[in-house]
Each structure stands twice: as C-alpha cells, then as structure tokens.
Computed example of a mutant assay.
Amino acid sequence: MTRPDPTAASASEARLTLFDLPLDVVTLEQTLDRLGGWMFRAPRSPHTVVTLNPEFIVQSRTQPEFVRAMQEADLVTADGVGIVWAARQLHGREVPRAPGYDIVKGLMQRHGSELRVFFLGARPGVAEQAAQNAMRDYGIQVAGVHHGYFDSSEDQRVAELVGASGAHLVLTGMGAGRQEIFNQYWRQVLAAPVLLGCGGVIDVFAGTADLAPAWTRKLGVEFIWRVGLDRKRWNRAPRLAQFMRLVQAEKRRQGRGTQ
C-alpha cells in the first residue's frame, strides 16, 4: 500500500497565527493524509496534534504551559466555526475545519485493522467501551486503554504504559490544556507517531456523550447546540463571548496599526 508523503504539503497550505498560537490551513482530507503518513512511516517518530477551538484560546491566555504545548505542536487544525470566523476577521483567510471527531473517525475508516489505537481518557470504564465500539465498527486493533482521571504524579507511569503498547494513534481525552501539555511533555516516552488531544471524542465513541446533529456540524454551530441542551456546559458560554471580544479587539488593534 502506498503511503502519502506527510511532508508533501499542498501549495494552498499555510500556517497562520491567532493570538500567538499556530493554525494550519488544512482540509480534513489533507489532515488524514498527513497523519496516515506519520503513523506508518519508518522509523517511528512522535507528532502532536491539536484541534483548536475558541475555548483553547481563552484558556491559554492565563496558562503559558498550554500556550507552549500548542506552539510546539506538529499540526494544529481548526476544530470549530469560531476559529474559522477568527481567521477570516484577522487574516482575511478561509480556513477549512478538521474537527477532532472527524479526524478520528476518518483515520479509523481509512486504516481499519492495520491501525493500533490507545484510548487514554474519560472516566473509568468509558475508554474500554469506546475501544470495544471502535473495534466492532471499524475493525481497529486496540493497543490499550486507560482512564483520564489520574494525578500528575502518575504521568510517567501512564506514559510508559502507552509507550510500550506499540500504538500508531493515541487519543488523549483529559480536558483542554491537560491533554495537550501531557502529549507534548511526554511525547518521546509515549512514542506513538500521532498523539491527538481529542477532548470528548472518547465519550462519543463510547456512547456516553451524543454527537451533535449533522446539520449543526455542517454549519459549524454544534457548540451552540451543546451549550443549549447541556446544563454542565452553560458555564462555557461566557468563554465564547470573551473569545469574540478578543477577536474584535485584535481586529481594531490591527486596523489602527495600518492607518
């Protein structure tokens, strides 16, 4: 089977900067091509992937370590419509979306039984269910599972467990910031070619969280749908408003700078 060359970037690809954070202008298909190349290339080399959303930007304003983890990532995709809107406002560029769930599902569909996946995250028992469902639906190999509720003092133990699994893909779902910092800091120990901070994707695969309806995902407004129906997410709405204010302030600043 011929593998795509992950270094053969399209002429249309570029890396933008949003609030000191990188953003790669890549489609979902280009993302899947690049990650597929990384996963099966010899010798193996770890790569971190971030799916950027507005909450990440707001949260990172007070977390320098989170900023560094994203700045050092090998690939940063636009997860939500808010990032697409920000790129349009601040750079005049149309940036395609490559959300975490779509990336994970696409990789499983493409590579099936040749793909070894480690499910790291969510509450105890959830990663196991997600792994079983993914194995049933896509025929993947389960490299291992571990919940995401462990203290930082256990980071090395868990990283070594993942590193010994021979996984091609590690799905790290431990919450924004924690998962990206963990992947970046322990990348050499984790050793897998693709380390993806995936948020609630493990819960979706397990069936303990619902995927937003197709129409909301197509329009890029699934965040609004989730916040509206899930009381636990209501406290996240102010972050979206704060993000919009940040973008508007930065746009005004850029405008003054060009006058």
Score class of each variant (00 low, 15 high):
27 T>A: 00
117 V>L: 01
49 V>I: 15
153 S>R: 12
136 R>N: 14
45 S>T: 11
101 Y>E: 13
66 F>K: 03
148 G>D: 05
213 P>N: 08
94 E>K: 09
172 T>Q: 01
214 A>N: 02
30 Q>S: 07
6 P>K: 01
82 G>Y: 07
83 I>Q: 06
180 E>L: 08
13 E>Y: 12
17 T>E: 15
93 R>A: 10
53 N>A: 02
19 F>Q: 13
125 G>A: 11
26 V>D: 03
219 L>F: 12
167 A>Q: 00
74 D>A: 08
70 M>E: 04
118 F>G: 04
198 C>P: 05
193 P>E: 01
254 Q>R: 14
85 W>Y: 12
164 A>N: 11
110 R>E: 05
46 P>A: 12
245 R>T: 06
179 Q>H: 09
24 D>I: 14
76 V>N: 00
215 W>G: 01
71 Q>R: 12
228 G>T: 10
223 F>L: 14
141 Q>T: 11
44 R>M: 05
48 T>N: 07
82 G>T: 08
156 Q>D: 15
16 L>N: 01
184 Q>P: 10
66 F>M: 14
153 S>M: 14
19 F>C: 13
53 N>P: 00
97 R>Q: 13
91 H>M: 05
148 G>C: 14
137 D>V: 02
223 F>D: 03
127 A>P: 01
239 R>E: 06
241 A>H: 04
38 W>N: 07
62 T>N: 04
190 L>G: 08
144 G>F: 00
51 T>S: 08
226 R>A: 04
135 M>N: 08
79 D>A: 07
130 A>E: 00
61 R>Q: 08
33 D>H: 05
103 I>Y: 06
21 L>G: 05
244 M>W: 04
116 R>I: 04
24 D>K: 07
89 Q>D: 03
234 W>K: 11
196 L>A: 01
258 T>E: 08
64 P>C: 05
205 F>H: 10
105 K>A: 13
12 S>F: 12
211 L>R: 15
197 G>L: 00
247 V>Y: 05
5 D>V: 06
124 P>W: 13
249 A>V: 12
129 Q>H: 10
135 M>V: 09
26 V>N: 01
117 V>W: 03
186 W>T: 10
234 W>R: 12
134 A>S: 02
168 H>C: 10
112 G>L: 08
145 V>T: 15
166 G>W: 05
2 T>Y: 10
61 R>I: 14
251 K>W: 06
